[in-house]
Structures are given as C-alpha cells and as structure tokens.
Nucleic acid binder design. Sequence first.
DNA 1: CGAGAATTTGAAATTACTCAACTACAGTGG
DNA 2: CCACTGTAGTTGAGTAATTTCAAATTCTCG
Lengths: 224, 224
Amino acid sequence: MQSNPLFHELNETALGKIVQAGHLARKLDGEYIFFQGDPALRTYFVLEGKVKLAQLTTDGQQVLMEYIGPGRVFAIIAAIPNARYPVSSQAVGDAAVLFWQRETMNVLTESYPVLSTNLLRVMATQIGEFQNRIRELSTQRVERRIARVLLRLARQTGRKLPDGELIDLEISRQDLAEMTGTTLYTVSRTLSQWENVGLIKSRRGHVVISHPHELVLLAEDTPK
Amino acid sequence: MQSNPLFHELNETALGKIVQAGHLARKLDGEYIFFQGDPALRTYFVLEGKVKLAQLTTDGQQVLMEYIGPGRVFAIIAAIPNARYPVSSQAVGDAAVLFWQRETMNVLTESYPVLSTNLLRVMATQIGEFQNRIRELSTQRVERRIARVLLRLARQTGRKLPDGELIDLEISRQDLAEMTGTTLYTVSRTLSQWENVGLIKSRRGHVVISHPHELVLLAEDTPK
DNA sequence: CGAGAATTTGAAATTACTCAACTACAGTGG
DNA sequence: CCACTGTAGTTGAGTAATTTCAAATTCTCG
C-alpha cells in the first residue's frame, strides 16, 4: 500500500486514520458514481473493480477520458470549494470505492501535509498524460491512436494468454472510438484489418493482442 | 494579488515571504526557460509578458499546449522529485518570471498549507481545461476548433479596438495550427474565408475579431 | 531594394465519416 | 433446446473534410 503514489511516505498509523475517515461504497456494473455537472463534493479511491470517466458533449456524444483501476484516486477536484465534476463516473463491472467529503479531505491534508504533496503528484501525472493525449490527437492518425490505446489498455489491464495478451476489460468498438476520437466504424475496420494480418484476435467485447511487438511498431512515430 | 488563485487566503506577510523566497529571472523574446525532458527543478510564476508551453513530437512537430500570462504559475510538476518537464517553455516577447527551487517549494507548502490547496486548485483547473481540449479534438471539426481558440485568445489577451477585438499576441498561422491540431494551410484557408465574410481581419501575425458574436455561433455546438 | 519568411491558393490525394444493409452473437422465454 | 429479439459488429459505397504538395504572392526587415 505504501507503494501507492497517494500513500507515499505515510506510515501505517496515518494510513489507517485516512482510510477510516473515508466511507465505503459499492457500485454495481454500470452504476453512476457521479454525473458531470454535479457539485464536486467527494474525492474517490478505487478499491476493487474499474471506473470509467467520460465527458458528454452538448450534442450527446461521449468522450472517454480514462479507466481507473484499483489503487487510484479520482475526482481530486472535490478538494476545491464550489467546483463541479467535469466528467461523469461510472462503475465498469461491480466496484468498491472509498470516498471522502471535502471537509474530511481538508482535515486530512492539514494533519498529513505529505498527503497534499501526494495529491499534487497524482495530478501532475494526470496532466502529463492528458498532454500526451492532446499531442496524439493533434498529430497522429486514427490507426496509430487505436494501436496506442490497445497497448495502453493491455499494459493496464493485460493478462497473458497462451496466444497473446488479453485486454481484460469488456470493451466495445464504441468504447474504443470514444477513447480515440473516431467512429465505431473506423475502429471496426481497423481491427478487422489487423485481425486479417494476424496481429490481433477479437471477439465481441474482447481483444487479444497476438503480436504486441508488431503493434508497437504501428503505434510508434516512424518517420518515413 | 489576493485575487490570484495561487495566493488565495494568504495574507500580506505570507505573500511577502513567498515572493522573497523566489528568484527573479528575465527572459528575452524567444528565449527558452526550460526544455522538454529536462529534470523538473523549478516552478515558475509569470510576472510580466507571456510564456508558451509546447510539446515536441518525436518527428519534430510541435503541439502548443498553452500560453501563460501574468499572474499564472506553471511547471508545478517540479514539486515532485525526479520528474522531468513534459513540455518546453519559451518567452513570447520579453518576460519576467519568478521561480522557486523544489526544496523552497516544499518548505513553503509546509509553512503555508493553504498554498498546497491553491496549487491543487490550479492543477485541477488545468486538468479540466485539458479535458475540454481533448473533447474538442475528439469531436469537433477544425473550423470550430479554430473559432474556439481565437475566442479564447481574445478572452485572455484581447484588446478592444474601434473595429473589433484585437488578439494582442504575435501569432502566426503555424501557431494557430499547433494549437488546434491542424495544418497551417487549413488555418490560412479558414481565416481567409472568415475574412471574406467580414468576420475577422487579419494581417501578418495579428487577428482582429470584427464580429465576436457571430464567431461564437461558429464555435458553439449547434446540433442541426 | 532584395532576401527570406509568412501567407495564400489551387489541385490532387488521402483519410475518415456517414449511411445503409447485412451478419453474428448472447440472452430470454417458451 | 430452440426460436426470437435486440445489440454488437462488419462491410460497401458514396461523400465530406482535411492534408499534401507546389506555386504564387505578400510582407517585413535590414
């Protein structure tokens, strides 16, 4: 647990207090934890399962910001008075989360100043990742973006199988499209193409990367 | 100064100490403050002038992350041990900045815990903005993205002129392309088109928005 | 004035989207 | 156990958006 970026340099006692100050909530598959636009009152920590954060456009499209797995905090924005959640969050599969009210967060960060630093660290990492994503969306073609997303998901949730790396996440073409800023048709075509050359195998809702190394080649900037 | 998000709820004395703990640096137009990949050792605050943050792709393209004006902090990532700057920063016009070493930052945040909260706030705002940008890049067409960038720049650096709102920033087609994830050709075409219908006026390096209201219409999601 | 950089514009090529039709699959209830 | 239904996925054809490349033009600065 000490290895968790949020709990870095906090001893057992402190950690115990922090966990005790939080509330446990269980969420069923698909259940929303909060909605975009809601007053941001709670900061969350994922204990079990996965949570997805997505932003809705005014015309109803979704943009999938990230999947959050066990051991990660989200909605740190709730530490700030009068903020609203900029995204909605939804359980993917059944999930257990811990949450703290803003007041509690303030008390905790005052008692354990290193907690603030840790939160800063988490957010800084986050910013770096978003910057990379902005760079990718700005400069890379769809195929490459899809390749990168698959590799990232494999890294985060991957499970080794005899015939490749399974992305252990119920994931649709639509989801991949929302992650890469394209349409489900283009995702479908791209995956079909990769399947034809034996790069991946996909059945409904699942993807297995048969040859990660070759997918990496596609994902990299290869200046011709 | 108290109205600055970074100095929120800090009194004059504290503010004085914080400023005194920083070092002043002057930068000439175009001078780099740090480079992407450098060890992140200092956090900065813009006193005068403007600074731009850009990320380079491996094949040498630039992506312009943001322009930072007076009163804003950047490179908070330096608060974190062993981090590297994920972007380069460069003065746009002559600029004056204040900076603190990581150690100083740590001392300051310990002495003034509210400073941590303020930093969190700044970063949370930042994250929200990046999420919006990701959404825009994922779902909107180039024309709309350009419109939004012009309006944002006008908001941040705008000056009222008799014939419209001047974006008070030496800005090239290339810059706009790097901000919107498109090519300088498309930017040029789009601006020409807007100029033809009297929406804007542009000379080399400058843009005046003649009819902001109509540009807003273009910038908004208008579900047909 | 001249040189280099920024900008504009046309034309062709490419990428990705849209729409529509079709197929495959999983779960339900008889 | 199987037919049924709705959702997920595939694919083709046409189209729209954007990029690419090349060539001209304009601007700025020394």
